[in-house]
Design a binder for these strands. Structure first.
Length: 853
RNA sequence: GCCCUUGUGUCGGAACUGGUAUACGAGUCGCACUUAAAAUGCGAUGCCCGUAAGGGAUUGAGGGUUCGAAUCCCUCCAAGGGCACCA
């Protein structure tokens, strides 16, 4: 036992070696089939822990495996480097965001990701806060602006008082900022920049069906978020002002005869226009109050309804009914038309509102066409129309179309599709982001910065970070004041920066052509690499990043800049890593604030990167949660030690011989014990190949199979030890087994396999294996012989009425009749049957025989 | 409230299309090696009854389909996640 398994002695050696060889470089336009493997790039927050490492490990195994399968793999890495934490750190510690960010990047790249043994092509590294990158983010923004997909509009927006900026809808969770769950967002009317994602709502929804390689739940989440509703817009004329109409959106035009009132959202401009003198004071008070309510307040009002009458009435175009108009904050200005028709009999909310204000409840749909007389709750099911004029008697589904058609014919409305998705608010009143390349000119209005003068550089020197009074950019006159590109007069730059989700909506395109100084990317390169064949990332981006990226890709496709429509063909969303938290006393997501982090540096030092990789892969399948356990991680280190000892020992004794590693063995020439071992090797290669395939990606069982092979090898060697002279002879089977074990383990444990591979000292390069001497990772993934993955002798299970009674050994492929008689002649079966008539016998070939009595 | 996911030994988890439930690992116990411990190797290890041979129940609970169900269907329970006054 000369040398102990001691990863710290060679992990870094191999990392440097791979770097030097450049074996992870992706080749543009290679002859081999391409495989674009992508992992969501991190925000450079400073220190990754073991929880973060999971996603990089998974993605790395996939990439390494694909390389061995002969693909031209693109596996890039970069940094989502703009964002608030850097700016907040600057305010707190007087450290410039750029310096802070760059230091974090260096540490995370060199001390953490590289030391995990990842196989990135660092020549394509992308950093979104570099002007080399954001220059093109700005360029893309201008393209959107040209196409009318970037617009400035006055709208109610979400303001986070903690971030001092507005947020997109997707960045509000439960009425609070996604970064600050304790801070409710405030509603403000502001003029802001939006990207018109709603323009693509229909496509973004429909094409979800094409994403067969995405997890169902992510698709469902996006579907819900886009939220398509089909219905009608109906027009109600104001009684006292025949030239004013209130338009409502409804998914239930079939209930229009049951309207007993209309409701406007407090923010609806019609409120001010229609309010009567008598009601003005009460309405004004109500509107003021609802303005003060945060989104959170409005959501937690227990569904109880409040509202005030407007003092106006409208005419129902269908039956001429005159019904009152109310203001209530259960109607949202930002959805539909900001006005709804109240049908208490067939809508829960309307029922609650009508009950509170004693409004009539008129039934217009009933199950058998018969009114119940007194409803205690809204009737929401299907049924036949009643009290609905000429539509009475129709089924309500048919009535939806008929009523909408009538409305269209009589200029009282039209069919309408409504989406829940809203335009993407992208301006941020913060410094550390990509400047929006526009100027405001007093005479020409908003003018785009000419492409030739991009980038609009984010000033680094002389920026003051106070965290107060808006973006620091507004206080930098030398940056702020420019000449108008159109008239040459005095103008001011736009001080808002872009939402950082824009940076990450196209980074996967830049990887395809990361060093291009002439354009954002060449179309040819992007068309070669895109779409991403396997994307790996957290489910927290199920909507945000993934939806924005889909939108971007679509828009760029329509501009002719890219060919593909969907950017990510396959998506794997890995589960989070948890651990017991002494702060809460519960098992929670690993994070610094919960005090349950395991650091990477210390772990790598003690157990090596391979043990860390294997444990994260082994403890749970990738989509599931993973609980970190020190014991479990030690177990993986123990497994690696077992491999180390076995192979170094056998190599030293001369049992494993390099010349025999790839020998093709004739199983019929081998003694039984060797046959069995050879079969085990082929079975293992098959199982691991299957587990690592894109259809499965179950690394835990792949490792389990490797462990079984190692256990089998130990058992076999223990047998050999009974005749010690055998342990000094070359063994073809053991050489073959050792070599293949290293190959199939290489994607998961790249360091130990590389070290042991080099110790095998394979013969010099041959045409088939040109890179023999260089690296195990340049090897081909091993093939298996299907015939050797099954045993010739097997155990046949014998059942009576589906219960196992006995087992017999049998040869593979015996006839059904032979299997049947084996069962019927078995003593235990006979005694179980004890003379009763056999109804039938079911034979599952090579598996079992079930005797039914 | 609606939608989705998950319930298997002491624990993490296997069981591919219905066909030997508990692979693999952790933990525990025993043996070997050792002055001793650690490390390592070997063995045992889901539950109940039994000294044993052996027998019985068992995949959250209950029912169903089937020769046969962890796997398919229905009802319920629990945990986690998403959406939530979206008209």
């Amino acid at each position: 036992m000369e040398s102990q398994y001691s990863p710290k002695e060679f992990d870094e050696k191999w990392q440097a070696y791979w770097d030097g060889l450049g074996i992870y470089k992706a080749i543009d336009d290679d002859k081999k089939p391409k495989f674009y493997s992508l992992v969501m790039f991190p925000y450079p927050s400073g220190d990754l822990h073991m929880g973060h490492m999971r996603v990089y490990t998974i993605s790395d195994v996939i990439s390494r495996h694909r390389r061995m399968l002969g693909y031209n793999v693109l596996n890039p890495m970069g940094w989502d480097a703009f964002g608030l934490p850097a700016e907040n750190a600057a305010i707190k510690r007087k450290l410039h965001p750029e310096k802070w960010t760059k230091e974090n990047i260096r540490f995370m790249r060199d001390e953490q990701l590289k030391k995990l043994g990842t196989s990135y092509d660092w020549q394509r590294e992308v950093t979104t806060c570099d002007s080399d990158y954001y220059r093109w983010t700005q360029w893309l923004f201008l393209k959107f602006y040209e196409k009318g997909l970037a617009v400035r509009k006055e709208a109610p927006v979400n303001w986070c008082p903690e971030c001092h900026t507005v947020l997109a809808n997707e960045q509000v969770e439960n009425g609070a900022c996604w970064r600050h769950p304790e801070t409710p967002v405030e509603q403000k009317m502001m003029s802001q920049w939006f990207l018109k994602i709603t323009h693509y709502a229909e496509e973004l929804l429909a094409d979800l069906d094409t994403l067969k390689g995405w997890p169902e739940r992510v698709r469902v989440m996006q579907q819900n978020w886009i939220g398509k509703s089909t219905g009608a817009e109906l027009h109600f004329t104001v009684e006292s002002k025949p030239n004013v109409q209130i338009k409502v959106f409804t998914t239930r035009p079939d209930t229009v005869y049951g309207v007993s009132y209309l409701v406007l959202a407090p923010e609806n401009p019609l409120v001010q226009e229609l309010v009567s003198d008598e009601c003005r004071q009460a309405v004004q008070k109500y509107v003021e109050e609802s303005k003060r309510k945060t989104e959170l307040d409005r959501m937690t009002t227990d569904k109880s309804k409040t509202g005030v009458p407007l003092g106006a009435s409208v005419i129902n175009p269908f039956n001429g009914d005159v019904v009152p108009v109310y203001v209530s904050d259960y109607v949202l200005m930002s959805y539909g038309t900001g006005a709804v028709m109240g049908v208490p009999a067939h809508d829960e909310r309307d029922f609650a509102f009508a009950s509170a204000y004693n409004l009539p409840i008129k039934e217009v749909i009933a199950k058998d066409g018969k009114a119940s007389g007194s409803l205690t709750e809204a009737y929401l099911d299907e049924g036949l129309l009643i009290n609905s004029g000429k539509f009475s008697g129709l089924s309500n589904n048919k009535a939806k179309e008929a009523i909408t058609a009538w409305a269209e014919e009589n200029q009282a409305g039209k069919k309408r599709v409504q989406f829940r998705l809203r335009d993407w608010l992208i301006s941020r009143q913060r410094y550390w982001g990509c400047p929006i390349p526009l100027v405001h000119c007093a005479s020409c209005g908003i003018q785009p910065v000419p492409e030739s003068t991009l980038p609009v550089i984010l000033p680094v020197e002389g920026v003051e970070f106070t965290g107060e009074g808006g973006s620091p950019l507004g206080r930098m006159p030398e940056w702020l004041n420019v000449k108008c590109p159109s008239c040459g007069g005095d103008a001011r730059r736009e001080t808002d920066t872009m939402d950082t989700f824009i940076d990450s909506s196209w980074y996967f395109l830049r990887y395809a052509d990361a060093t291009n100084h002439e354009e954002a990317f060449s179309k040819a390169r992007v068309d070669y690499w895109m779409p991403v064949d396997q994307y790996v990332g957290g489910v927290e981006h199920a909507i945000l990043h993934l939806l924005y990226s889909r939108f971007f890709t679509r828009a760029l496709k329509d501009m002719g800049l890219v060919k593909c429509v969907e950017p990510f063909t396959n998506l794997l969303s890995q589960g989070m890593v948890t651990m017991y938290s002494p702060v809460s006393g519960r098992i929670e997501k690993m994070s610094k604030s919960r005090g349950n982090v395991v650091g990477t540096l210390d772990f790598f030092k003690r157990y090596g990167a391979d043990a860390a990789r294997l444990f994260t892969l082994f403890a749970a399948p990738p989509e599931q949660e993973l609980e970190w356990s020190e014991d479990g991680a030690v177990g993986q280190h123990r497994f690696l030690t077992r491999i180390w000892r076995l192979l170094t020992d056998l190599k030293e004794k001369g049992v494993i011989d390099a010349s025999l590693c790839r020998a093709s063995l004739d199983i019929n020439q081998l003694p039984p014990a060797e046959q069995q071992l050879l079969r085990l090797v082929h079975k293992t290669i098959k199982a691991v190949s299957n587990d690592l395939s894109q259809e499965r990606y179950v690394f835990n069982t792949a490792i389990a199979r490797c462990m079984e092979l190692v256990n089998g090898l130990y058992k076999y060697v223990a047998e050999l030890e009974r005749e010690p002279e055998k342990l000094s002879q070359k063994s073809a089977v053991l050489s073959f087994a050792a070599y293949n074990l290293l190959l199939i383990l290489a994607p998961m444990a790249p360091h130990i396999t590389e070290e042991l591979y080099h110790r095998l000292d394979l013969p010099s390069s041959s045409p088939d294996y040109p890179s023999d001497k260089d690296s195990i990772h340049l090897n081909k993934w091993p093939a298996y012989d299907q015939a050797l993955t099954v045993d010739n002798e097997l155990e046949l299970v014998l059942q009576v009425n589906g219960k196992i009674v006995s087992k017999v050994s049998a040869s593979r492929g015996i006839d059904r009749s032979v299997a049947e008689s084996l069962a019927l002649e078995d003593d235990k079966i006979k005694s179980k049957i004890s003379g009763q008539p056999v109804k039938k016998v079911i034979v599952v070939p090579d598996k079992l025989v079930n005797v039914v009595i």
